[in-house]
């Protein structure tokens, strides 16, 4: 008796998406370690507090990145609805907002370093931590932008929809995560600024 059987060897993407989740966990641990380092440092001695007002420009950048999460969501929605033109538009918007965020953060450094004379190499390392938080976060933003550009390339309507959706899901996971990390860092800094 011969038996006909479907070999289920099709593209199995679920484990790869899971990989992204675990990666987010490692990233989360990284920022947790940095902020814990900050807490240990400031707790260790007097004069180790931040003691300056976090520049207001970071409110603007926070708004920008929250907005970009919204456009990212719209792009994903469009991709699921096979509206590729719309998907591209929202992706481009997200990328633009990402770049704007990047620029605003760098402008924030400019304000801190030039206007407020709070340098990276600082005898009070808690102030250096502000640069480390934002810098390491910008590295993540950069990685996110690379992922988004890759999406843009795949959203031409010619790439198989499975792959398009897959890479959309991967990068939107990452982008929302990076967004949340920034909110966490910003709130953390606001709570510790005095």
């Amino acid at each position: 008796m011969a038996q006909l059987q479907q070999d289920k060897e099709k593209l199995n993407l679920a484990p790869k998406k899971f990989n992204m989740w675990i990666f987010l966990f490692t990233s989360f641990m990284f920022f947790m370690a940095l902020t814990s380092g900050f807490i240990v440092y400031t707790g260790a001695g007097k004069g180790h507090e931040l003691n300056f007002k976090i520049p207001d420009i970071f409110i603007a950048s926070t708004a920008v990145i929250i907005l970009s999460s919204g456009t990212m969501y719209m792009a994903s929605k469009a991709a699921k609805g096979l509206q590729f033109a719309k998907q591209r538009m929202f992706l481009l918007l997200t990328i633009a907002l990402g770049i704007a965020f990047f620029a605003l953060q760098v402008y924030g450094w400019y304000i801190m370093a030039i206007k407020m004379q709070i340098y990276f190499a600082n005898p009070n390392a808690s102030r250096s931590f502000v640069y480390v938080f934002t810098g390491m976060h910008l590295l993540h933003i950069f990685a996110g932008l690379v992922l988004l550009l890759n999406n843009l390339r795949k959203s031409n309507g010619k790439t198989p929809q499975v792959k398009n959706l897959y890479s959309m899901e991967m990068s939107s996971l990452f982008w929302h995560f990076v967004d949340i990390v920034w909110i966490y860092l910003y709130v953390f800094l606001l709570l510790n600024q005095h």
């Binding site: 008796m1 011969a2 038996q3 006909l4 059987q5 070999d7 060897e9």
Partner: peptide, 11 residues
């Protein structure tokens, strides 16, 4: 892509 495989259980 899925492939069709014929399994002969006696073979």
């Amino acid at each position: 892509m899925s492939t069709l495989a014929v399994h002969d259980h006696h073979g």
